[in-house]
Structure formats: structure tokens, C-alpha cells
Design a protein around this nucleic acid. Sequence first.
DNA 1: CCTATTACGCAACGCTGTTGCTAAATTTTT
DNA 2: AAAAATTTAGCAACAGCGTTGCGTAATAGG
Lengths: 369, 369
Amino acid sequence: MTRVTADVTFLRGYNQALVMAVGRTARTFERSTVVEATGLTPQAVSKVIARLAADGLIRPAGVRRPGIGKPAIVYELVPDSRYAIGAHVARRTLRLVLVDLAGTVHHSAVSPLPRDFTPEQLLDALSVGIDTMAGIGDLRSRLTGLGIGMIGPLDHANGLVRDAHGLRHWHDVPLREIAEKHLGLPVHLDKDVTAGITAEAWRHGATFGDAALIMVESGIGGGFWLGGAAHRGAHTNAGEFGHTVVDLTGPRCVCGRHGCLEIVHHRAAEAGDIAHAARVLAVGVVNLLQTLDLAHVVLAGADLLRHPQTYLAAVTEAVGADARRAAWLSTTVALSSLGADVIAAGAAMQVLDQHYGIPELAHSLIVGS
Amino acid sequence: MTRVTADVTFLRGYNQALVMAVGRTARTFERSTVVEATGLTPQAVSKVIARLAADGLIRPAGVRRPGIGKPAIVYELVPDSRYAIGAHVARRTLRLVLVDLAGTVHHSAVSPLPRDFTPEQLLDALSVGIDTMAGIGDLRSRLTGLGIGMIGPLDHANGLVRDAHGLRHWHDVPLREIAEKHLGLPVHLDKDVTAGITAEAWRHGATFGDAALIMVESGIGGGFWLGGAAHRGAHTNAGEFGHTVVDLTGPRCVCGRHGCLEIVHHRAAEAGDIAHAARVLAVGVVNLLQTLDLAHVVLAGADLLRHPQTYLAAVTEAVGADARRAAWLSTTVALSSLGADVIAAGAAMQVLDQHYGIPELAHSLIVGS
DNA sequence: CCTATTACGCAACGCTGTTGCTAAATTTTT
DNA sequence: AAAAATTTAGCAACAGCGTTGCGTAATAGG
């Protein structure tokens, strides 16, 4: 994923990814579009386009006659040239989606998981679901891998589930390793909320700024997209947004502290006052904006999406009403464009991103004494 | 600073910066050290070292005889080969520091600023201070630039001060541009807290993980280092950490909301209960950890540093006592190693980082339709 | 004195994007 | 209808990066 050293093969992959990013952002594009967006020379773009076309990732789609001069060749992404499968593992259900290179969800299926399911039971469910989906159009050969988004805590870098909340059989399970062996596919493991925000970022293209996905679903979590990449924190534990204190004198939360956003919100929702619950959530969202200065806030999660307009209105109003917001401080607030599929779809897009996204260079070194 | 296109000149700069990062992190190093840390081939490292030595940035410092075999040449950074000046512009004072390539602060000077000073008055004060410092060892030729850390809001990318809080003459002032013209030096402008966390990151070297600088000084702010870079947010407005609500039923803050961390903390401090104030701050810090999963928390700011041990103890205890913290969730808490110089020094290091730090590739494109 | 070991670096190489220039395709002008 | 102007596409030579292959220098041990 990330690499330390930069050599010419990195250049190749990086600039190819830039062109792919243009392809995902714009429906169609031509050589001059890429030249403008990247600053590469036309000749270099020609070479990159030729390589991508040879791999079947893009293809010519007619010509553009801008008036005088030789017509420009118009290219487009080939969405069905690559696929990935995404899995959203929750406490009682498994959701599987099939996503193409353009970020379009083609199939979505939910199946129940046994209470307190074991790793083996999950693997079996995954195996059945993947075989069904991959068989639809015989796209096994174009399948780049499986992404899994699930509840934490987990260790993203090592593909290890540390202690999934509320699941007894999930202590230090090397899920990525055993899933790759069991399924014969590259597997990518991440927290659910992080996968979710990746979906939004991947679909919005390379111009997507700093953003958060707020998820209300048996707890409140946050997924962050900062500086062009998912933010996971030092131990893949970022996003425990529900356990930030918003009421010092509030009720005691399961986490031990008093007045966490989650417990305050839960009490209001339990009492049937969804509007109040939404306003509490909105306070937490504005807290995030003050801290992180986000360009986008995306709302998601089963409990939230039962009252989408109530939450959307409350958060939009709080963001807009905040007296400190000036004209240049704009933040968009929206419901997830993918609805209940957002986590699973994002997990799939993380796999696609590893292959066709803009590669990152490592920002930390290991230096001996 | 950031560039979109990757070409071979990027490779050159990037790998040179990797070696410089090793040099800053380890006091001395040799070829094999760099090979291990970066994954470059020994031959490539030799070439990079030769280039850096020719520029005077590193130099041989003896040999190491590991027993059998030809002795390895030991290199070290040449700290006095490059300098930068950092300025911390506060409401009533200007602090200037001279920092060398290794991140060591050589001189520090504080001068008063007129009440409601104008841009011209600031430029004059900067001019006088810089001439004094640059004259000390005739290091004008080794001066890479001036970094300015100041109160926001401002626009980092364009070097524009939007509306410095509490300063009347600072609306939409293109400070970077006019300072560069007036002083004849490259100028870098950033928020004070962002400059501060850069100081900590630069001094700790390339192994420094996600971190925050908590600053208590006529307000409460936070500077963030995430994913190997400073996090400024979508509008250079990240860090308004003091205006996050921690007490829904608390007193009204100047920002219009109720129970902001800043007002709750301020009330406690005003009442003389510093221990309580420190515990309030600690709640906010744990909120940050829950949200961002940080590896380091650094405490700074004049008001905090008047009671350093009280704050350090309160935050350390809150971080440690948080019931959700497991063995693998470690976070260090420390007072700023630079004390009152941290902002100014960090501003200087941002200049050095632009020249000798690890370059970044842009994560966003501009794509026309 | 010879050998094993370790570190260093020259030379050739493959690959990247760049530069210089030619060819092709179209509209506009003559 | 032919020539000129304009825009796009791409071949060929090039500079510069890290890599590879291999020879050389410097040390300790036998």
C-alpha cells in the first residue's frame, strides 16, 4: 500500500493513477483534460493513456471537434473492467455488495449471521455470498479482491481483529490472513466507518476535501477523510466519536465517562424525542467542524436513516447557525448517497483504491540508533 | 510545496529528503543505516549522500569499525549549514527565534507590539528583529526564510490573514506577499497552533505519529499532526478546539454556543481552581483521543505553563484512567520541549521543512467538465 | 602473507517523463 | 478546388533517476 522508497516504478503508478482519477471524476475526458489537471506534458499523457488502454481500464469513446484543428480523441473509464466485493460485518448481519471500477454498486445482498458468530461461520457466509456474486457475469477474473468493513477495535495494518465489540469469539483474530487463505482473494480489513467515508471520497473523486462520515447505528461512530486519505489514527482506533463528552454532568456511559454524546443521544431517542436526539448529534458534529474544519459531513447509519430528514435538518441548521461560520467557511451536509450500502461499498472501494487509486508514500521511517 | 505531477526530479528530492530525515532523527548515521530505513539500494544511497555532502548539508564524521571488514563512513547532519527565523505574532508581543537545520533554537527574543498594531508596524518590528539575528554570525546567506505563526483565521495556502481575532487592522491582509517584498525573504504563514505541532514533529523526526498540541493561552487551541503532515482543514481553520461543547447546560460562550471547553475552563481558572480547570481540559483531550486516536499529546501555552505539573498530571491521569484504553492503546502526554518558543520555532521549522523535509504529492486535482 | 569479510563506487542498463520535431486531420481562407 | 492555419497525435532522441553487475579498498583472523 504505502511504500518508503520512490523509484521510477512509483512514478509510473502514480501518474497512471492521476489519469484514472480524472477518469473517475469526469465521465469522459481527453488528452488535454489530463494535461490541464495534472501538469504532465501531452506526450507523457499519451504514453500513460496508451498503457491504461492496453490494460482495458480506459477506452476511446469517439472524438471531439472543437472547431478548427484535428479532432481530439475522447476517452472514458471502462467501469466493468474491474470489480471488487465489499462486506459489511455487523453484529447480526452480513451485507455484501459488488462494486465496479467507477464506484457503482451492482448488487447488494443482506444475510443474517448467527448470534455470537465465530470466524469460521463468517468465512463460510462470505464464501457462499462471494461465489454467488462472482458467478453472476463470470467476473472472477476481473475481481480484484474483498474488502471487509467491521466493528472494531481492530488493527488495519496487520489485518487483525482485536476485540470486536459485543462479539465473544473475536479476540486477536488474524482475519485478513485466514480470509485470504480461505477465499483465495486479496482481502482488505478496516473499521466500518473508515470504509464508509472511503466510499464517499472515492465516488466524489479526487477533488473531495476533508470530510467525516457520521454513523448512528447501535452506537455513534465517525469516519474521517483528511488530507486526501482515510484517517485511522495511531492504533486504527479513530472514530470513537460517540464517546466524546458533551455534557459534563450527564449520565454515566458504558465507557465509564459521564455525558458522552452516545448516551445523551440514546436517552433522547429512547424517550421518543428524535428531534432532540438529532440536535444533540448536531452539537457533536459542530464540535468536529471546530476541531477539524471539514468541507463535507455525510450522515449515515440505520438508526439515523430511519429519520433522515430530521437529522439532516438539525445538522444543517446547527452547521449554518454556528455564529463563528463566516462566508468563506463553507461545509456541505448530506445524507450518504449510498444509503445502507455505504460501509460495504466503501470496503470494496478500498480494494479498488489499493490497485487503481493514487499511491501514497510512507511518512514515517524506522531509524535504528 | 505540494505538486501534482511526479517526475524524476521529484524522485531526487524525495529520496534526498528521506536521507535528511534519517540525519535529523539519528545523531549520526552511515550508509547501511539509510539502506535499512528506506529500502534504497546501497548504490543509490551513495549517490544521494554524495549530493547532500556536496551541498554541505551533511558531512563525514569519522568511521565505524564493526570488527571485520572495511570500516563504514559515518555521516552527520551539519546543523549550521542552514537556518530559518520563526516569528510568533501574538496580540501584544512578537517573539523571534533563530533555528538551525537540526531544529535547535539558537536565539530567542521577545519584543512588545503596539496595541492594535498595523501590518506596517509588524513588518517594521520583523525587519529590525531579523537584521539583528541574521547579523549575529553573518548567516544571511544560509537563511532559508521566515516562518510566521499567528492567530487566525487565516488562509495558509495563499498567505492571507483573514480576520485575526482581536486585531482591528487585520482584515484580508496578504501578509506573505507584503512580507516577502518588505523583507526580501521567502515567508511562510500559518496558524500558531499548527506551527507549534510542526515543531514537535520536526524535532522528534520521521517516526513521530499522529499528535496534537494543546495550547492554553488567551483561549484554547489545538494543532494537529496527522498522517505525517500538519492538518489545517478545508479552510485553514482546524484547531478551534476550545469551542467544542463539553457541557450542554454550561454558560454561554463568546462564540454563541453553550458550555464550550474554553468558557468552562476559563470559569474554573478564574475561580482559582486550577486543578479543576486542568481536569476540564483533560476531558477535552480525551475527547480528541477518542475521535482521532493520537499517539502523542503535547501541552503548551503561557496560561498552561504557569501550572505545568498540575495540567500534566490531570491530562496524564485522564488519558490513563479512561476505561476504554487497552494495553495496545498507548498515548504519550508531555509538556512542550520548547516551552514558550514552540510556536515561533515551529514556524521556522516549517520553512526548513519546505526545503529539506519530505515533499508531498497533491491529493486533489482540478478536473474540468 | 593469504583469505574472508565488509564497505564503497564505477559503468552499463532499464525505465521514467521531457524535448524537438514530423505527420495527420480538420476548418478557414484564398 | 487548392493553400494556409490550427489543433492533435506520436515517433525519436535525450537527461536523469534508481538498479544491477562487478571490481576495488580496507580491515581482522588464520
